[in-house]
């Protein structure tokens, strides 16, 4: 069902189908509105604006040095849904997940340095999305969208490849930067076969921003400690290597719901404004993330 929702959302937000034939992008007013996931606005079918691209565009513009609109939008989505967007509404997340279904002799869950590498996405957010567009400006005072320019594989896949294939004039001006971005895309796609969602885990600035809201978001994970038998099935199946029993609203959780499906006692649920249920007094208690048992 989740892949169906992901695919439906990807089609809806990229439904300017004529663009895939003409090589021209949609230019309607809908593009004022950001979409919640990473979806390049130069994709020929894109109906909305990429929030990360928009953030860099406003920060790097001559008129503004901060975007209340895009930051407000991202904070709003994060506060309401956390990383639910990553698990359900991001087209590039879907592509990585589908690639991960390709059989490979040795799939990698976690590895030495994995936890440290996951911090990299926060550096990408701060340096490439905020600081460089803000401070590295041209003589007109305009900053470039550095994340889009040097890293974003979604932009290459959704915008760069189709537009260059469809537009002969663009084919004539591709250079080393295009080659670099295609290389980043190829590495990301190949890595997705071995590691589940490598871009989301290590590089995505959007995931980094939403992850900050996971512990407080309105839509959240709840583990019923009275029915949980501690079998560990949930932690074993998590594609993001989260242990829902220990940290149900960990920053890395993308709310995909695999843990809920494998739980033999239905102890895990995802809902709005869910209160964490602790064990009854006298039973073995486990300190929950962000919950002081004394408050219960």
């Amino acid at each position: 069902m989740r892949h169906g929702v992901q695919a439906l959302w990807a089609v809806l937000t990229n439904s300017a189908f004529a663009g895939f034939v003409t090589g021209r992008i949609y230019t309607g007013k809908l593009k004022t509105i950001c979409v919640p996931g990473l979806n390049c606005y130069s994709c020929p079918g894109a109906r909305g604006a990429c929030p990360i691209g928009s953030l860099q565009a406003v920060i790097g513009s001559r008129q503004f040095s901060f975007s209340y609109y895009v930051v407000g939008f991202l904070f709003l989505i994060g506060a309401l849904l956390g990383r639910f967007v990553c698990g359900w509404l991001c087209p590039f997340g879907l592509i990585q997940e589908l690639l991960h279904k390709i059989p490979f002799p040795k799939k990698i869950g976690t590895f030495r340095g994995d936890r440290l590498l996951r911090k990299l996405k926060y550096a990408v957010l701060i340096v490439l999305v905020i600081l460089l567009p803000l401070f590295l400006t041209d003589i007109l005072g305009q900053g470039a969208p550095w994340f889009c320019k040097v890293l974003c594989p979604a932009g290459t896949l959704e915008g760069g490849l189709p537009l260059v294939l469809l537009d002969r004039s663009l084919r004539g001006i591709v250079g080393w930067l295009y080659a670099w971005k295609v290389a980043v895309l190829i590495v990301t796609l190949l890595a997705s076969v071995v590691i589940c969602r490598p871009f989301c885990k290590y590089l995505c600035p959007l995931g980094a921003l939403y992850s900050v809201f996971n512990p407080i978001s309105v839509f959240r994970c709840r583990v019923d400690r009275e029915t949980c038998v501690g079998c560990g099935a949930c932690a074993k199946v998590c594609p993001m290597q989260v242990d829902p029993v220990r940290t149900p609203n960990a920053p890395e959780c993308i709310r995909c719901g695999r843990c809920r499906r494998v739980c033999p006692t239905d102890a895990i649920s995802f809902r709005f404004l869910a209160e964490q249920k602790m064990r009854k007094p006298g039973a073995e208690t486990v300190q929950m993330e962000g919950v002081d048992p004394a408050d219960e």
């Binding site: 309607g28 606005y41 990429c50 928009s54 470039a144 969208p145 760069g160």
Partner: peptide, 12 residues
């Protein structure tokens, strides 16, 4: 920004 082809985004 969103209604023009973003040359940076597509790698050009």
């Amino acid at each position: 920004k969103a209604t023009r082809v973003c040359m940076e985004c597509i790698g050009i």
